[in-house]
Design a protein around this nucleic acid. Structure first.
Length: 954
RNA sequence: GGGCGCAUAGCUCAGUGGAAGAGCGCCACCUUGACACGGUGGAGGCCGAUAGUUCGAUCCUAUCUGCGCCCA
């Protein structure tokens, strides 16, 4: 990285580039050592609190985390510098399925006993061991990003305190009737053999088939089915049928059919309602029922009903009183032979038994083939259609989800949603950008019961115990449950001895058996905004976190991506309102998704994942952070291109070198320096611009406009400070005027300090490094004061003057380039027809203009000399007298083009001004502006025309 | 089917009811004592289409076309 320089050098300890890899860790440690991540206890400091969206404990940092945590860190650092007492609360969730999966895989790889072999207690101990060893990956990675979380408060959803809170919540909701046990269809994941919630199912359209089966009518019945229609849709031809055709995308489920439904208005089947078909393979007599679920347009219009294996059919079955017969096992194999519910009422003829035996124990997809083959062989397969079908997949397991009839615990989400909807309607919580409120309402208004039980071992075990008679005791502890059980059974007439025997596990069995299931991970995540702050224990006065809980709930803002509005935001709203009687956060800032360059989601299978840590290694955390923030425009996804990261790394280097220049020139603001005291126009100008930038950046942060804030500080640093101020200041810094030099040093140092502060939330490492390198300073930049915008630092006249000069230099450079004047050549400049103000400006800045435009002399003339290249700047004519050097014809052409351009503008303005409606109805200021524009263009045109005349006179 | 969003320079994207912007890329020139991870200059756009509102539309409204995402 470093450029080799021979011999001692004043700059030897200030390398030409910042070395992020070498510096980041050290800087982060310095922050941590200084306790800079802990909330300030300054009296009167306003609390500012963010709870981190807890990453999955098995996870590692991906680009979504990088963006999410960069934005949180920016807010945290900004508010901290502004003097608020900032708590950024970190932690992980325990990720039930994912973690269990990781540990099981580990057991398998190491050829150790499986989960089931070692038993629940040993397995859970194993998971904890894994967590201690490998669970902290992502929090280490967040440190590399620069995240200023208060690690001393790190929490985990399986912590003792949080687990206690989960039990408390469960019990209270149960007692309030908001949690209940119910037997209904769930989304069953056959791979993990657990229920999952609707949200954990991904519906994906895949290529599938629609198999049309014939179900023979029972009792030898027949009917007339229309097969041809006239133009009006009236049937003209019928055929006699002794079967009903049904279509299915999942043939194996027919084994559990208990009915066939037709639409009540479907004339074709009117006479069949109330009759029966004989279910092939099975031999069950099942009724034909009328139900509006049957779609006359779809297939034949008749639909098989499998209440135990299809959500819609379950409802139809309930309406029609059809039984639900489960024909599958937990791992999605067909279960017939030992299946009492299936066998009930059937006649197991040898032919049937043979098919059942072939099917029994087969995987559902195997069974599907067997069923289809059977229908084909028996002439009952009408046809097979290729069809796009939407299939449900488990988001973790990737296997097809099976609707499955089981007992599960449910949260009455609909009831809890009421307060959560009202809170947003009343503006207690605000979504930014605002349009996400619609998504939130949409979900909340259509919310379904939330299945919270999972058939896993890793998680919060449900605090419910069952007595010998199956009675359920829900309690926060086993002791409490036992007391309740004893009370109940005593009242029922059991003797104490009998109960005692049961407690010891003798006699009929143990008194209480705990529900083996655990809760959905999101159940504990929903409590995160208050459990991490110490609830419920901290409600007690005198508890260490009592004040924390009281002052920091509701938290200030939640920063998250839209894809977990349903998973998490909505559920935190419900739980927070129910248990804390207030919303969990004031603002919800919803940020973008990070996509690849082509706008595709990053995924391992696509191989388009960009690893944030690799980018940090290559370009530094600052560059990655700035890239993400600069692109975090509201309501838009981020397409991440590495070139962009490289560009912002270059920006960091630019800043680094500007600071290096400042150090070399001893540019430091003294402790008592007052920027309002600057006298030089140049200095007043940069103070003015820096002050405006302070306002812009602060305002942008306050409204979560990260990209605007990034843009403002980027432009100011590079295009104002580096490109112009430092260049313009060089004569003063390297000249002999001691007073001017001193003031310029102070102002340059002061401005650099503004930049470091404004940039710090985006680029904490390089700015902190420079903070330490550019002046003797006490304390860390991270804890320095955020600058304020002051009206007295405004200097519009100075700004106008410097902008005039910048315009002049740019015009000269432009003309030089067009004239192909060698960059190194110093040439004279003539100025004609300057007014007094312009003359004064030119005189004041002649030195820098000569330097930056590479001029030899500047002279005032009445009229430009013969054969000069001429241009107009702010109403004055300037010329580069290059007789003999310039191509007269080309110069004429150039002037003509310029004139034409001016005239085009004049014509456009004239057209506007000629429109009476415009003059009468547009605001006066707008009309004035147009008039003044016209005057400017006209003056320019005239001057250019005169210049052209002079050239023609040659 | 319901909802949300996008279409602006070659690419990635800002932006505003009253003079089209950035980064990257491209072209030309420049190793000038902060910086070649740099400097200077430049080319490049009927702001998706149509209609409407307006004195005035890239911006507001409607329709259309194309493309995303979420939910059923």
């Amino acid at each position: 990285m470093t450029n080799a320089k021979s011999g001692p050098d004043a700059r030897s300890d200030f390398e030409k580039t910042f070395d992020p890899a070498g510096a980041e860790q050290e800087i982060y440690d310095a922050w941590e050592r200084a306790g800079a991540f802990r909330p300030s206890d300054a009296p009167g400091a306003e609390p500012f609190t963010i709870v981190i969206p807890p990453p999955n404990v098995t996870g590692s940092l991906h680009m979504g985390h990088a963006l999410n945590n960069t934005l949180q860190d920016i807010l945290a650092r900004f508010e901290r510098m502004r003097g608020k007492s900032v708590l950024w609360q970190p932690g992980c969730d325990h990720a039930g399925i994912a973690t269990q999966m990781v540990v099981e895989r580990q057991l398998m790889e190491r050829q150790e006993p499986s989960r089931r072999e070692m038993g629940r207690e040993a397995f859970v101990r194993r998971v904890w061991e894994w967590k201690e060893e490998s669970g902290g990956t992502i929090t280490r990675q967040l440190r590399r990003l620069g995240a200023s979380c208060d690690w001393s408060r790190e929490r985990f959803t399986m912590d003792e305190g949080l687990s206690k809170a989960v039990a408390r919540v469960f019990v209270q909701l149960y007692r309030e009737g908001l949690i209940y046990r119910d037997k209904r269809l769930v989304n069953w994941d056959p791979k993990f053999q657990t229920a999952i919630s609707d949200l954990e199912v991904e519906n994906i359209e895949t290529d599938g088939h629609f198999w049309h089966f014939r179900y023979p009518l029972a009792d030898g019945a027949t009917y007339e089915f229309p097969v041809e229609y006239d133009e009006d849709g009236k049937p003209t031809k019928w055929e006699t049928r002794d079967y009903v055709s049904v279509a299915t995308t999942r043939p194996e489920t027919m084994l559990g059919d208990t009915g066939v439904a037709v639409h009540p208005d479907d004339d074709r089947y009117k006479d069949l309602v109330g009759r029966f078909v004989e279910l092939p393979i099975v031999g069950r007599r099942i009724p034909i029922v009328a139900d509006e679920h049957a779609d006359p347009e779809q297939g034949s219009g008749a639909v098989k009903i499998t209440p135990a294996h299809d959500f819609n059919d379950f409802e139809v079955g309930k309406r029609a009183g059809l039984p639900a017969i489960n024909v599958m096992t937990d791992d999605a194999r067909i279960a017939l032979l030992d299946n009492g519910a299936f066998l009930d009422g059937l006649d197991p003829t040898p032919a049937r038994r043979k098919v059942w035996e072939a099917l029994d124990g087969k995987d559902r997809f195997e069974a599907r083939k067997i069923v289809v083959a059977w229908f084909e062989e028996n002439g009952l397969l009408d046809r097979v259609e290729e069809k796009k079908v939407v299939q449900p997949f488990g988001d973790r397991s990737g296997v097809v989800i099976e609707p499955y009839l089981t007992d599960q615990w449910y949260v009455d989400a609909k009831k809890l949603a009421e307060a959560a909807i009202a809170a947003v309607e009343q503006g207690k919580t605000r979504f930014v950008p605002e349009n996400w409120t619609k998504t939130y309402y949409q979900w909340m208004h259509n919310i379904q019961p939330w299945c919270v039980s999972r058939q896993l071992w890793w998680g919060h075990q449900i605090p419910a115990w069952y007595g010998p008679d199956g009675h359920c005791f829900v309690a926060e502890s086993e002791e409490e449950a036992r007391r309740a059980a004893i009370a109940r059974y005593t009242a029922e007439g059991y003797t104490l001895e009998e109960i005692d025997r049961m407690v010891r596990g003798e006699g009929e069995g143990p008194l209480l058996a705990r529900d083996p299931d655990v809760l959905d991970t999101w159940f504990s995540s929903a409590l995160w905004p208050f459990t991490t702050l110490g609830w419920p224990d901290a409600e007690r006065e005198g508890h260490a976190d009592h004040a924390v809980l009281k002052t920091r709930y509701p938290t200030s803002v939640l920063v998250t991506a839209f894809d977990i509005i349903f998973f998490w935001v909505a559920r935190m709203m419900m739980m927070g309102l129910h248990f804390m009687k207030d919303v969990p956060f004031r603002d919800v800032y919803i940020h973008a998704l990070v996509l690849d360059e082509q706008g595709r989601k990053m995924s391992k299978s696509k191989g388009n994942v960009i690893d944030p840590l690799a980018l940090i290694d290559k370009y530094g955390a600052d560059a990655l952070r700035f890239t993400l923030a600069a692109q975090a425009a509201q309501g838009r996804n981020i397409r991440l291109a590495e070139a962009r990261v490289e560009g912002y790394r270059n920006f960091a280097t630019k800043l680094w070198n500007a600071a290096r220049f400042c150090v070399m020139n001893e540019c430091v603001a003294g402790p008592g320096f007052d920027p309002a005291s600057a006298t030089a126009t140049l200095n007043k100008w940069i103070v003015h611009e820096a002050n405006a930038c302070v306002g812009e950046v602060s305002a942008a942060f306050e409204t979560y406009r990260f990209n605007d804030a990034a843009g403002a500080i980027y432009r100011f640093t590079w295009n104002v400070f580096c490109d112009w101020y430092l260049e313009l200041a060089k004569p003063a810094l390297q000249g002999d005027d001691a007073a001017a030099k001193a003031e310029t040093r102070q102002v340059a140092g002061w401005t650099l300090e503004r930049i470091l502060k404004l940039l710090h939330p985006f680029m904490p490492f390089v700015t902190e490094a420079l903070w330490g390198k550019t002046a003797r300073r006490e304390g860390l930049l991270m804890l320095a004061d955020w600058p304020l915008e002051f009206a007295e630092l405004r200097a519009p006249e100075a700004a106008a003057e410097i902008n005039w000069m910048i315009g002049l230099i740019t015009a000269i450079r432009s003309l030089r380039a067009e004239m192909n004047i060698p960059a190194a050549a110093r040439i004279p400049l003539e100025a004609a027809s300057l007014d007094d103000a312009a003359r004064a400006r030119l005189a004041a800045h002649e030195g820098v203009v000569r330097r930056l435009a590479r001029l030899s002399v500047v002279s005032l003339v009445d009229a430009p000399g013969q054969g000069a290249a001429q241009f107009v700047h702010d109403g004055a004519v300037f010329a580069l007298p290059l007789a003999g050097v310039i191509d007269v014809a080309a110069e004429k052409a150039r002037l003509e083009k310029e004139i034409a351009k001016a005239e085009e503008e004049i014509a456009r303005v004239d057209k506007k001004l000629a429109n009476r409606n415009f003059v009468e109805r547009a605001p006066a200021a707008v009309v004035e502006e147009q008039k003044s524009r016209r005057a400017d263009y006209a003056a320019q045109r005239d001057k250019l025309a005169a210049a052209l005349d002079r050239l023609k006179a040659l």
